[in-house]
């Protein structure tokens, strides 16, 4: 790791000031991806601005039809919080299976989505739960926020403050994890709303995406059997030593069925 200056501001305003005053700053939340990258010397920020001390970025709030989770909330807290477990149990379940206990007790919601790793779990929840990402400047719908592989709509001086998740009638997440990293080789979240069904896939392609065909099939019949015979085009899917595109395409349908069954469909 190279040398860097470490800052721990107490307010968002202070953090923004530090951002604009630093030569090549990087915001750090849990550091679960940034720190290993820095250790490998693949990133060399001049200044790290740690958001951990900003009280505004902590907390979970029930807004009736939706649930607001502040950016610096760690995965372990989302997994165990009573409001989340009661309001959107599938989201608590998803958070409880991210990485390992160390990651779940350091890694944060805001950090994960700002990084937008193609194999991370939260991007699937953002898309399936019709989430809106709140930043210090604006509200960004999840489909616009997740703009590509490791890419988001965030500007360089913009800070995620939290995420608003719409509460579904029922939902579930099923993933096929890499046994070592627990990253999703493929992961599918289904969520049923009064007027629609949303199906989001992560781990399978360069960026999490919604599967329109599966959504259509489930909208008329929310059951695993409704997905029989459907296929996902393997052409755009990831290929690596863990799984071929064809295998991932197979997993997506399989996991979607499991998720529907787990949601009680």
């Amino acid at each position: 790791m190279y040398e860097f200056n470490y800052h721990r501001p107490g307010t968002l305003e202070e953090a923004k000031k530090m951002l604009s005053a630093s030569e090549d700053p990087k915001i750090i939340a849990g550091g679960m991806t940034l720190l290993p990258t820095m250790k490998f010397r693949l990133a060399r920020p001049s200044d790290l601005i740690d958001l951990g001390n900003i009280s505004k970025l902590h907390g979970i709030r029930d807004d009736g039809d939706s649930l607001f989770i502040a950016a610096m909330t760690i995965h372990a807290e989302v997994a165990s919080n009573e409001l989340v477990r009661a309001g959107i149990p599938a989201l608590a379940e998803l958070a409880g299976n991210i990485g390992d206990p160390q990651v779940r007790n350091r890694g944060t919601l805001g950090g994960s989505i700002a990084n937008n790793d193609p194999a991370a779990d939260y991007p699937a929840a953002l898309l399936a739960l019709d989430a809106v990402v709140q930043t210090d400047k604006r509200s960004i719908p999840s489909e616009r926020f997740l703009s590509g592989m490791f890419e988001t709509a965030l500007q360089s001086d913009e800070i995620v403050t939290g995420v608003t998740f719409s509460r579904p009638k029922r939902a579930a997440y099923a993933k096929f994890p890499n046994p070592a990293s627990r990253y999703a080789i493929a992961g599918v979240m289904v969520a049923e709303y009064a007027d629609s069904v949303r199906v989001a896939v992560t781990g399978a392609a360069a960026c999490a995406f919604r599967a329109a065909e599966l959504e259509q099939a489930l909208s008329s019949d929310f059951s695993a059997a409704a997905l029989d015979g459907l296929e996902i085009d393997a052409g755009e899917l990831n290929s690596d030593l863990h799984a071929s595109p064809e295998y991932r395409a197979h997993l997506v349908i399989l996991l979607a069925k499991r998720a529907v069954a787990a949601a009680g469909g």
């Binding site: 193609p118 590509g148 592989m149 360069a206 899917l237 990831n238 290929s239 690596d240 030593l241 595109p245």
Partner: peptide
């Protein structure tokens, strides 16, 4: 080479 040709393709295309 073990890491994944799709990611390479995606990054290159971008």
């Amino acid at each position: 080479a073990q890491v994944g040709s799709r990611l390479v393709l995606g990054a290159t295309r971008k």
